[in-house]
Amino acid sequence: MKRPPLLPLLPVVLAIVWLLLNDSLSLGHVLLGLVFAVLVSAAVRLLRPLPAWPQRLHVAIHLCWQVFLDIVRSNIDVGRVILGATRRQPTIGFVKIPLDLRDPHGLAMLSIIVTGTPGTVWSGLDPATNVLTLHVLDLQDEEAWVRTIKHRYERPLMGIFE
């Protein structure tokens, strides 16, 4: 079930970015930021016909924490691979993962999560069959990667965006 969110997301984020950029909370900057936010989001509405309505804030916060932990863990793993590269070059490889997620915003978030984590790079999605091609630095167990992506990232994203 999709329902409009309580707050319009884009203008609020734009106003916060304006205040951060100017590093002040004075009345003038708050008013100017609000005016800019409303004008820019009205202009952007023509460019993007598909508004995003993310839901379930607690799932999103839990996902963020999970992604942070994974980034730390895979940083250590990739660092170990690089420092041991003289003895053994890593076995690189592609993994094909069939996805159930269809929402474009969810897919965009998934690509940012996957590529932002060291050791995996998003390398293409077949729009017809919805199969993701993932490039992995140190490929040991293909099944484990499929399970990780589907269970850890795709399910929360489907809960948030669909």
């Binding site: 990739v78 690089i82 060291p118 050791g119 995996t120 790079v121 630095l137």
Partner: peptide, 9 residues
Amino acid sequence: HAPTMGGTL
């Protein structure tokens, strides 16, 4: 994959 380390953490 290597520069992603410096780019994120």
